[in-house]
Every structure is written in C-alpha cells, then in structure tokens.
C-alpha cells in the first residue's frame, strides 16, 4: 500500500455566487497515476488549480507531502514547487526562448549545476521525449505534438516526484497521444513519480489510470481503481465510458 501524496478534504470553491466545488474529499496515492475526470464544467481544472496553489483554499484543506497548503510560507511554497512538475494543456513554453532554453530554465534558476551539465541534461531530457532534433527551435516553430513533448520535458526537468498533467491529450492525434501516455507510464515506472492527470480522453484514461477520481457538477461521485470505475452502475460514469444509455 503506497502512502498518499495528496489529501484533499472538504474542499469547496465558488466564483462569485456560483459554487464550483462542493465539499470534495479524495486522496492521491504515491507512485501511481491518478486521473481526475469528468465532463466539461465539472470542476476538474478548479481542483487542479487548488492543488497547484494557484487558487487559495478558502474552505477545506489540501495537504501535499503532509504539508497543509494553506499554511505554507512563500519560501515553503517555492520549495514545494520544486517538487512539482506541471505539464500545461497549451504547453505554456516561453515564446522568446528556444526549446533548449525553456527546459534549462528551471535548472538554471533552482540549482547550482554547471552550465555544461545542464546543457547535457536538457539534451538528454529532449531525447527522452523524442525531441532532440528540435532543441534550437522556438515554440512558435513547433507542431502541436512537439509542443506537448517539449512541455513534458520542461515539466520533468527537475525530476519532480509529483507530475501534474492538465489535459495532456488535447489536440493530439491517437498515435501521438498513445506515445505520450507511454512516456508518462515509463516515467512513473522507472522513476516512481506520482502523476495527477486531468483529462477526459477515455483511451488515455484506460491506458494510464491506476486511480480514478470522477467529478460531476463539482462533487466527487466516484473514487477508486480503474476497474471499479468501469464496473460502476452510476449513469454519469457509464455514459462517460460509453457504456450507458446516454440518457444521463
């Protein structure tokens, strides 16, 4: 039984008067791929932003590596960020830096490593994501799939034990998506990292998920293994996996 890396309890969130999360409780087991899924507007991205500390926790509690997110000082938050890699949906690479410089950035900012070692590490990370021939290109010169892989290389630049992936499959063809999933699985298997993925790509979920958190209208309707999700009788879950009547 692996230890929980993240624990969310009674988390609620609202924008103006509109409640988007209602007393959400779930945990993320270490060294597994946890997929947070649900339809559009179910609150997936809001949860992710709370986990990343981008939204303040007003109601409830979020604990990452046994630390309460709300009680962290700025310095503690900065150190925590070094333990996290975030793979954004649109890549979020800096446009005025080439791919090599983008990936080297966190290493240059947070480590004392010599430049030649950093350069070699970046090349190695690029090879890992199959992008070694695009190191000197700028983000505007990359295709959608290349952009995703470059973003993943940057997310794992610091070897984070915790990797967040926000809609990694959005805009990718099935073959590229399968490769990306395999890459994420390799990282999990070989480095033992914990992956939290927000997605609604069913094929990707079936390939990668160990643990599933299913959201509907800001509430968790199911938390469990992939098998439990697939065997669920809940109409919203059955519809999501293409097994329902579509009546929901």
């Amino acid at each position: 039984m692996t230890k929980n890396v993240i624990e969310v309890s009674e988390l609620s969130a609202a924008f103006d008067e509109r409640k988007v999360l209602h007393r959400v409780n779930f945990s993320v087991p270490g060294q597994q791929v946890t997929v947070i899924l649900g339809g559009s507007g179910s609150g997936k991205t809001t949860i992710l932003k709370h986990l990343l500390g981008l939204y303040p926790v007003d109601e409830g509690r979020v604990r990452i590596f046994d630390r309460d997110l709300a009680s962290l000082s700025e310095e503690e938050q900065r150190l925590l960020y070094q333990q996290m890699g975030v793979f954004y949906q649109n890549g979020a690479l800096l446009n005025n830096l080439n791919v090599l410089e983008n990936i080297a950035l966190p290493l240059q900012q947070h480590t004392q490593l010599p430049e030649d070692l950093i350069a070699e590490m970046v090349r190695m990370k690029l090879r890992l994501v199959g992008l070694h021939d695009a190191a000197l290109l700028f983000p505007s010169q990359l295709s959608g799939g290349m952009l995703k892989r470059a973003a993943l290389a940057r997310a794992i630049a610091m070897d984070p034990p915790l990797l967040f992936c926000d809609e990694p499959g959005a805009g990718l063809d099935p073959v590229s998506l399968a490769r990306l999933d395999q890459l994420i699985l390799n990282l999990k298997e070989q480095l033992g990292i914990t992956v939290i993925m927000v997605t609604h790509e069913v094929s990707s979920i079936l390939r990668t998920a160990d643990h599933i958190v299913f959201l509907d209208e800001g509430q968790i309707v199911l938390e469990g293994s992939k098998e439990e999700a697939l065997a669920s009788d809940l109409p919203v879950v059955r519809d999501f996996f293409g097994k329902g009547t579509g009546a929901y």
Partner: peptide, 18 residues
C-alpha cells in the same frame, strides 16, 4: 543501471548550433 540507461545522453550533433 536502468536509471543510467533511461537518462543516457543525446547525440550532441542533433542539438549543435548551425
């Protein structure tokens, strides 16, 4: 050994400046 293989170096030619 597996870790060293995973993080094996890239071909420097591929990323050399023009």
């Amino acid at each position: 050994e597996e870790r060293l293989n995973l993080f094996s170096p890239a071909d420097p030619q591929a990323t050399a400046a023009a």
